[in-house]
Design a protein around this nucleic acid. Sequence first.
DNA 1: TATTTTTCCGTTACCGCACACGGAATTAAA
DNA 2: TTTAATTCCGTGTGCGGTAACGGAAAAATA
Lengths: 376, 376
Amino acid sequence: MKARNGRGRSGAGRYRSPGTNSGVMEEGNKITINDVAKAAGVSKGTVDRVLHDRGEVSQKSREKILKVIKELGYRPNFYASILASRKNYLISCIIPEFNNGEFWELTEKGIDQGREYAGRFGISINAVLYDQYDLESFQDACEKVLASRPSGVVIAPMFRNETLKFVKELTENHIPYVYIDSKLEDDGYLAYYGMPMYQSGYLCADILTDGRDVRKVHVIRIARDKRGLSDPTLTRRTGLVDYISEHYPDCDVENTFIDPKSREERYRKLDEMFASDPDPDKYIVMCNSRVHFVAEYLRDRGIRSCRVVGFDVLEKNVSALKDGYVQALIAQHSDRQAASAITAITDYLILHSGPQKKDNYTQMDILNKYNCDYYL
Amino acid sequence: MKARNGRGRSGAGRYRSPGTNSGVMEEGNKITINDVAKAAGVSKGTVDRVLHDRGEVSQKSREKILKVIKELGYRPNFYASILASRKNYLISCIIPEFNNGEFWELTEKGIDQGREYAGRFGISINAVLYDQYDLESFQDACEKVLASRPSGVVIAPMFRNETLKFVKELTENHIPYVYIDSKLEDDGYLAYYGMPMYQSGYLCADILTDGRDVRKVHVIRIARDKRGLSDPTLTRRTGLVDYISEHYPDCDVENTFIDPKSREERYRKLDEMFASDPDPDKYIVMCNSRVHFVAEYLRDRGIRSCRVVGFDVLEKNVSALKDGYVQALIAQHSDRQAASAITAITDYLILHSGPQKKDNYTQMDILNKYNCDYYL
DNA sequence: TATTTTTCCGTTACCGCACACGGAATTAAA
DNA sequence: TTTAATTCCGTGTGCGGTAACGGAAAAATA
């Protein structure tokens, strides 16, 4: 059981022992723009011009400089760069508005985290919220963002066509954008951070059924009049249904629609559901973030015989988990998605490097009453 | 459902509308050292002296400058700072050595992530490995690290007494250090990143038993001659046992010791275990990262009737999960722990700010065959 | 060929900070 | 009082870039 490599044992410490050029530390790269200029026989102004494609450089010099840059392995020092060019980068985030305790609040938290990171590089972040049920407000938001001439955009798309129109404009203005939550089928985006929706439904079904003898699964859904707006949880429901029909061919999947705005209405619907089927051991799923609606009902009715699975780490959901009205929660960490999105754009602006992966499917964490405390 | 705040709707874009002083953006802080100097009626050299406690400043000037700094809310620009002071910060990490596919490899991955972050701030990272079963090699490592005069240290402690001695020296030299994986009872550390061990055992038992009628739980352990070295999984086992005795008072917990170095020996022990108890439906737990040993055995023996739970996202463990020889894995993401540790020290060195929380218990992710793909 | 335009490039002044250097003012020693 | 030692502080240079400015060389036009 020897050390796999000698890194620790040898040069212990000194981060660049003189004469050593082992690439391990990759930090000794002290080649400056002046070195490049000298080696290319030009002035640093010229080098800077090719570095930023500012033109006014002869083809010959340009090639020479590019060659030298590659040979020397020159990489600009971005402290100096940021210091000298006092640009005001701005990244705008377009997300649905929300009330306290709702899903998109998590995303905003992530934006705050991202702001902290970006702030270190002199990049500011602003969030533009829109009503996810109101097309016009979305268009409004897009216009405002465009008007603010951002250096990058993070967007959680809800309206397909309008979003496509919007990102087309971004592309024309060479503004990089990254999708969070869900993405569209264009491929001009810099990156995407979201949950694998189909798989999350599949996973959810597995946790719900858990090898038991399940005859019926109740899917509770939000009654909404969708007017061309995309429902991201649709795919999730497909995954759920697929799992059931693969593993429990005789199991029914029944939909119940509830109203997010009226508690009485919800109770009535759920009462009906329970009345229609005498078996008190029910398997219940909610594919969006509002499983706390179900938990609230169960708590009030004193029903503890159901197995309930939901999504997302909302405070209300977690407390339902702790109280035992919900057995498991699947978390997608939309905060981390937002933060990663901002980080990706920041790095793109500062380091001129794209993210390693374009499509990033964040992990699906399974929470139960014993580990939920550690998810904030 | 109106926007919770008007941020998005109002100033849409402009990152600092003139006249607005809302702290939200916290970026507009353009007060330089020169502004401070002017306001205090001294030169920037003097301001610099008090900023760095370099002395040679009269009490009177010092106080005045400090006052002005506070009043103006001056915060140094750390690009300029790093650029001007070409210091060579070094963070050393002391962790156990490992072979490919073993637990500590994850930690090293995290160190690499941390290196990328720290590298941006001109900070280099080096890793010093030690044999976790050899006290002397640990002492060796500590000495080497001390000799390299690091600006900060990350340490995964295995030997209690020696570690305490070591961190005492660090403290004397004003070198900040952070614990990962486990921590000791001193409190001079800058931060700690690790898993809540007791809770992880408790959680593990919950997942293993899963509401079933469990009569006996088999805990597989590594036979090791411990000579005063601390076993971090001990606490985990305690949590496990506590859960069982709380929820399954009639359930036995039986230990089986296997040898990590000899497969035959392992098979023999496990054969014995299966022979001793005719019931093929066994509940098996391994409290360290090597549940793949059990999976390997089950695969070879063609046994599929057991419920097995283990820890950590090693490649072998994940494939056992996929193949169905292990039902669940609890992940502690030691990579993230290491990366966070490095980030914490980096921020401390650059921003002079400690981490928000000193003790950070990372989340315990539950992996099964349907979500494991998204954990790398 | 003389003049204008275009193309291309070097020079230079910062950006905000760190730190060396040298000098004025004050105090101690002679 | 003269000289030496302290104490305190301002100035200046450079870190590695950015970008404005102006001018020389080459090309186009007269």
